[in-house]
Computed example of a mutant assay.
Amino acid sequence: MIAANVMTTSPVTVNENTPVFEVVDLILNLKISGLPVLDSDGTMVGIVTEGDLLRRRELGTEIKRPYWKELLFSPGRLARDYVQSHASYAGEIMTANPLTVSPEAPLDEVISLMENHNIKRLPVVKADQLVGIVTRVDILKALHTIWVRDRDNESADKKKIDDESIKNEIIERVQSQPWAPKSNIRITVNNGVVDIDGVIWDENIRAALITLIEEVTGNGDIHDHLVFIEPITGFCIAKQD
């Protein structure tokens, strides 16, 4: 999946001369966290977000530093802080030259950028023109669409799967996972109910095994008999159903 598959096309934008109060109106009315900023030629030059509007003189939230600390900052830095809290137009408070992605950017790359830079949205640009925007909500919508599609497909093609097939698929998936204790567990299936026995050295492995089984069976009919052995003390804890 790529950015073009999930992005919002024709996103709402503002221009450099849009008053700040209109930016706030749009953010509140549209229930979004930021807006691309375009210049007079329609080229994206920045993005203004909720974060750009938190330190405002109207709120009394301008950055206030002790005099001695201000001596550590250049006049230019102090001037930028003043503009951020007092400016009247989007172009003055926006984040210039924001991160962007192309429509062909893989979705995992988009998500990595969001995670690494702690941002909620990425403009999608082609030939210097804004063609869309990808937000965290857009990604969740794509996930929801996949879930609904898969659920509908399962309902349309639903058939009874025998216990041996369920067991074999679980074992096959366990064998493919680098974290799984392949030689320390035993799987049995009876009337669709899965029993899992064995030894683990990390409770995260228990959670992962249960998740894997639920992916195969589509339900929580699992009897967990795994024994946790604390690796340092050797203390054993058996799961109680």
Score class of each variant (00 low, 15 high):
residue 226 L to S: 04
residue 15 N to I: 01
residue 205 I to R: 04
residue 178 P to Y: 10
residue 226 L to C: 02
residue 176 S to C: 07
residue 129 Q to R: 15
residue 232 I to N: 15
residue 126 K to A: 15
residue 82 Y to S: 11
residue 194 V to F: 10
residue 208 A to N: 14
residue 182 K to W: 07
residue 230 E to Y: 07
residue 207 A to R: 13
residue 81 D to L: 15
residue 74 S to Q: 11
residue 135 T to N: 00
residue 108 D to I: 13
residue 197 D to Y: 13
residue 101 V to I: 15
residue 152 D to P: 00
residue 241 D to L: 11
residue 49 T to P: 04
residue 223 H to V: 14
residue 12 V to P: 01
residue 120 K to T: 09
residue 24 V to C: 07
residue 209 L to H: 06
residue 191 N to S: 09
residue 174 V to D: 03
residue 229 I to P: 01
residue 95 T to S: 13
residue 77 R to C: 10
residue 61 T to D: 12
residue 139 I to H: 03
residue 96 A to P: 03
residue 101 V to G: 06
residue 54 L to Y: 08
residue 56 R to V: 09
residue 153 N to E: 15
residue 50 E to V: 08
residue 7 M to C: 11
residue 86 H to W: 01
residue 121 R to S: 11
residue 166 I to G: 05
residue 120 K to G: 09
residue 118 N to T: 08
residue 185 I to C: 05
residue 228 F to P: 01
residue 78 L to K: 04
residue 156 A to Y: 12
residue 148 V to L: 13
residue 182 K to F: 08
residue 82 Y to E: 09
residue 18 T to E: 03
residue 176 S to T: 10
residue 193 V to C: 04
residue 196 I to L: 04
residue 57 R to C: 04
residue 231 P to S: 11
residue 185 I to M: 05
residue 151 R to T: 15
residue 63 I to T: 15
residue 43 T to M: 11
residue 227 V to M: 08
residue 218 G to M: 03
residue 38 L to H: 05
residue 91 G to Q: 12
residue 167 K to F: 06
residue 219 N to Q: 03
residue 111 I to G: 09
residue 221 D to F: 07
residue 177 Q to R: 15
residue 162 D to P: 01
residue 212 L to D: 02
residue 27 I to N: 07
residue 224 D to T: 07
residue 167 K to Q: 14
residue 141 K to C: 10
residue 83 V to T: 15
residue 207 A to G: 06
residue 142 A to Y: 07
residue 228 F to D: 03
residue 27 I to R: 04
residue 201 W to L: 10
residue 47 I to G: 00
residue 118 N to H: 15
residue 124 V to F: 02
residue 122 L to M: 02
residue 189 V to H: 06
residue 131 V to Q: 11
residue 15 N to Y: 03
residue 5 N to Q: 07
residue 121 R to P: 02
residue 4 A to T: 08
residue 150 D to N: 14
residue 63 I to V: 15
residue 195 D to I: 01
residue 235 F to R: 14
residue 193 V to T: 13
residue 72 L to P: 01
residue 60 G to R: 12
residue 234 G to I: 12
residue 130 L to C: 08
residue 196 I to V: 13
residue 54 L to E: 04
residue 171 I to P: 00
residue 74 S to E: 12
residue 103 P to L: 10
residue 43 T to F: 14
residue 60 G to N: 13
residue 62 E to R: 08
residue 216 V to T: 07
residue 76 G to F: 07
residue 95 T to L: 07
residue 170 I to W: 06
residue 89 Y to H: 11
residue 174 V to P: 00
residue 193 V to G: 00
residue 28 L to G: 05
residue 207 A to H: 14
residue 49 T to A: 10
residue 159 K to W: 02
residue 176 S to V: 06
residue 85 S to C: 00
residue 184 N to M: 09
residue 221 D to E: 09
residue 166 I to Y: 06
residue 44 M to E: 01
residue 204 N to Y: 11
residue 221 D to G: 01
residue 182 K to A: 13
